[in-house]
């Protein structure tokens, strides 16, 4: 425990941290407050967090304005599929790159590492035509395939490899003696031992997919197929005027559940990100 030299220092310490925290906390509060204000009140010059009259119906209106439940589900299932697929693919490849000596593995690793930093903007145009050629335009497949095999998938593979490299080889030796196949060793021994890495990669991949914006923007046109970020950018009236009250209600609906999960599993989530950076 840091001990404060005097009450004055202690007050200053907490006060400066609290002031620094304002731009991190206030946006969430203002969002929640705007979500229950009327369209008129939202523009009255007032800093009151509590509305004059509560407009809970804004939340209901969100679902009438767009197929928001459907869009919510889209985001959720895509993120789950991407996470599950990515975990399988990346742990398999990560294990091989860390544990199996085979010709070309060094070259492959080098190739993957060099792609770690490449943003999707660089390849989005050819991918647009590739998806068109494959007939996957206006489907969720690009949103699943690109994160799994693009730089995010590479990052996941790399993280898994780093983790497997650090596992003591004796455990595998024992399993090999017992006559387990390579896949058996991977599946029954290595994977169970790599829970922390799997959790980290899972969390990061899930959030990456959940927050994806450029791909839905380019590949989706049907409002029923929209994902949450794209749906959120769509709360204007038909002539382009932002509907801030609905916008804030929808944003709250998208953000709050994630925040609750985050607060509940704060330690695990923060550690996952720390792991990704330290190893990356």
């Amino acid at each position: 425990m840091t001990r404060f030299q005097s009450p004055f220092v202690r007050i200053c310490w907490y006060l400066s941290l609290a002031i620094l925290a304002v731009p991190f906390v206030f946006p969430f509060l203002w969002m929640l407050s705007g979500a229950v204000k009327s369209q008129t009140e939202i523009f009255s010059p007032s800093l009151s967090l509590l509305p004059q009259t509560w407009h809970w119906e804004n939340y209901a209106e969100v679902f009438r304005y767009q197929p928001f439940a459907r869009q919510y589900f889209n985001s959720l299932y895509i993120a789950v599929v991407v996470t599950a697929g990515s975990l399988f693919i990346s742990s398999l490849a990560g294990y091989a790159l860390a544990r199996i000596r085979f010709a070309g593995s060094g070259l492959l690793l080098l190739m993957l590492i060099s792609a770690l930093m490449m943003p999707e903007e660089v390849t989005i145009i050819p991918n647009f035509f590739l998806m068109k050629w494959l007939g996957l335009m206006n489907t969720h497949m690009p949103l699943i395939l690109l994160p799994m095999f693009g730089s995010q998938g590479v990052m996941a593979t790399f993280l898994m490899r780093q983790y497997f490299t650090a596992l003591p080889p004796e455990l595998e030796e024992a399993a090999r003696m017992d006559g387990l196949s390579r896949f058996g060793i991977f599946w029954k021994v290595a994977l169970p031992l790599s829970r922390p890495a799997l959790a980290a990669v899972g969390i990061i991949t899930f959030l990456f997919s959940w927050n994806l914006f450029l791909e839905p923007l380019v590949f989706l046109s049907d409002i029923e197929l929209f994902t949450l970020p794209l749906a959120l950018s769509n709360f204007t009236d038909a002539y382009g005027l932002p509907l801030w009250h609905l916008q804030m209600a929808a944003t709250s609906l998208a953000v709050v559940p994630i925040l609750i999960v985050y607060i509940a599993a704060q330690r695990q989530i923060v550690e996952s990100f720390a792991l990704s950076g330290v190893k990356g």
């Binding site: 335009m137 206006n138 590949f219 409002i223 038909a238």
Partner: peptide, 21 residues
């Protein structure tokens, strides 16, 4: 009938045409 907000309309239509959809 499919609504595309006015501000993005031409762009979205073009994207759909270019995307073969």
């Amino acid at each position: 009938f499919e609504t595309i907000p006015f501000a993005d309309y031409v762009q979205k239509i073009t994207l759909q045409l270019a995307g073969g959809n």
